[in-house]
Design a protein around this nucleic acid. Structure first.
Lengths: 388, 388
DNA sequence: ACGCCGGAAGTAAGCGCTTACGGATACTCA
DNA sequence: TGAGTATCCGTAAGCGCTTACTTCCGGCGT
């Protein structure tokens, strides 16, 4: 009456049960560490499991328990501006986004979750489908910056909890980001007041990235407030890649433009490109032009000159994103959140209220002064050169 | 008779069917792009789907179709030797392994598969469980070097197709790796014949990593064959981290040992550490000691001196691993492979025979001569900090 | 006109688990 | 000793899909 007689196929819980002489319920119980089964039974089951090399099927488990223990992470496949070779690997090379993923993974693991990662090419025409497929395979989604339009995000947030990174948040989607505002203002003050630069510029990242918008606005705002001048606009539009930094500087120089005394970049990679292009033309950093970054990626302090930048708690951002998502997942018994986002202050406490309104979590950042802004080089033996 | 009346929960295929006035079978058919449903029907279904924001459940789909369209990737969480700070981020920073994952991901995506990534701490006591859980969530596993003992690998390979990276292969598990032998012999020849070095050394990676074993043996073998001397042994045992390179050199110098004229390292990161430690003691590379790496990670050519190393087709290795795994998955109708591995030549053709014996795929590598071996420098500018 | 045939759509049987329920069994205590 | 109670374990009903099989329907040949 039962075809489950064979032993050829990968073993199922039925095979284990038969072999151990118990019911599938008992097998399931020992599998899940329930304490009902008494030791003797448990041992027989365990024995059968190992003899058969049984591995419980995650799909069946997920279907039955309504929990996949998988979170999806979608990030953008980067194709930065091509500068002709020097940085071609840099763009495919794993930086900011990957560090965040690492942070997510480590925390997720502690909760028994695994990461389903997927990079997307933003102008892929099947994008909606791709994201849908991914959403179907996990309990929740973490979306990096610039992978989906706000409308698209809202759409898929109808069926799966979603946390965005450096996004806008709103609706039922939560958002986690570093505090760009405070630190970029501090950066402006440092450059204008401490170093006395009057003519500065800001190189932006992807045009519609919330982070770059805040960074640029805060920086320029503070510079102006201090009586300085801050160049921005199309000529200063980059895309977060080193290549874009190179192109912008080369373009400006080719046009015979007078460079500003200091250039703040939307991120470290752009700064890397800028410094490279400047060196190419014999310009000294910070002697002729000061340059700063944002993120404080590991390579920032190996650069020459060491890069002044803003440290973001990268892994913490990832960790926070997971925690927020996790609380949405466990608190989600299908009760759609009433919305009404509530921006939270830096070092924001967790939403707390399970199922409560989605929020915007902003983590503190920190200005790291090194050499590229004009500060004196660190003279301590380099081995001890810590992050201060 | 059916409780599926509510509309609060996330919609299922039943909700879509009801709304479109068709059966669930039809919905499923349009979902899977079958051509049966006629346009009119299809449109109604599509409409219902988008109105409901329906996302098919991956677990149910997987359970029913016996295919999850997910491959697991397990890699080791690296905690290299601590050198006191300078390279602390390097180890958590994403290098070789991540590049491979990227390669896997891109190819997997083309086949509709997603990646379930999981890092493991090798001395975690729940490791077997962790891996089992992961295995249960995917159709096949790609195991990076050093994540599981050969016995452990064989065990889980009983229930899921497995491909190892830079492993040993054998049994039913396939293996993919770069050709360390040919290129390390070439490296030895270059160092001994072209540069005339007679006294060299090889710094190994993790003791039981197949790759480092081959690298060391081939290098030393060729050096000896050419009449040179090659130091190896405990004093030259590293762990693939920059920190281990630093410690080894410091140790040697502290002991007052006479350094060899050239040091070949098991990978680029180790070389980075070695160069750093040498500079620390005022030794010039390659003037006093030549140093070489392996992998050709992006940073290798930004080092100063630029690193002579062996280029591995990193992303290709990942891509190949996926392709091999994929063919195992689709050819696996539960028929255990008869074993008998058949080593394949470089640029190995795919196993071909579905369900055929597992194999060892070795991809070609290439010696990249830059400055650290003593060759003349490339003239492009470098903004990367001199390691000193 | 009738029976056939082909394609569209529906019915229902699982896929391999978890778990609510309830039956057995073994203890406890009056 | 018998009822009451705790424990252990088995039965069976899904979870949300895919798909083999069946039904239905309209057009065809003769």
């Amino acid at each position: 009456m039962d075809a489950r007689a064979g032993s050829a196929a990968t073993p199922t819980i039925y095979d284990v049960a038969r072999r151990a002489g118990v019911s599938i319920a008992s097998v399931s119980r020992v599998l899940n560490g329930r304490d009902n089964p008494r030791p003797a039974t448990r041992d027989r089951v365990l024995k059968a499991i190992s003899e058969l090399g049984f591995v419980p099927d995650g799909a069946a488990r997920a279907l039955s328990s309504r929990l996949k223990q998988v979170v999806g992470v979608v990030f953008r496949r980067v194709y930065g501006t091509d500068d002709g070779g020097m940085f071609e690997d840099e763009s495919e090379s794993l930086l900011f986004g990957d560090q965040i993923n690492r942070g997510i993974e480590i925390v997720a693991q502690r909760r028994g979750y695994d990461l389903l990662v997927s990079s997307v090419n933003i102008d892929e025409h099947t994008l909606p489908n791709r994201i849908m497929t991914i959403a179907g395979k996990c309990d929740g989604l973490i979306l990096h910056d610039q992978v989906l339009s706000p409308a698209g995000i809202a759409g898929i947030a109808r069926s799966v909890p979603v946390v965005t990174l450096a996004g806008a948040g709103g609706g039922t989607v939560a958002n986690v980001r570093g505090d760009s505002d405070t630190s970029m203002r501090e950066m402006a003050r440092h450059l204008v007041q401490d170093h006395g630069y009057r003519r500065l510029a800001f190189i932006a990242g992807h045009a519609d990235s919330p982070d770059t918008i805040v960074r640029g606005r805060s920086f320029a705002g503070e510079v102006h407030a201090l009586g300085g001048e801050c160049l921005t606009g199309p000529a200063w539009q980059g895309d977060y890649s080193a290549g874009s930094g190179v192109q912008i500087i080369r373009g400006l120089i080719a046009l015979g433009a007078t460079l500003p005394r200091a250039i703040a970049c939307a991120n470290d990679q752009t700064a890397l490109g800028v410094i490279y292009a400047l060196a190419e033309h014999g310009l000294d950093v910070p002697g002729d032009v000061a340059v700063t970054g944002f993120d404080d990626l590991p390579f920032a302090r190996h650069l020459r000159p060491q890069l002044t930048t803003v440290r973001q708690p990268i892994q913490e951002i990832g960790a926070k994103a997971f925690e927020v998502l996790h609380s949405m997942i466990t608190a989600d018994p299908t009760v759609p959140t009433p919305a009404t986002p509530s921006p939270t202050a830096p070092t924001a406490p967790t939403t707390g209220v399970p199922g409560g309104p989605a929020a915007d979590f902003v983590l503190p950042t920190k200005l790291v002064r090194r050499e590229s802004c004009g500060c004196p080089p660190d003279t301590r033996p380099s081995v001890w050169r810590q992050i201060s």
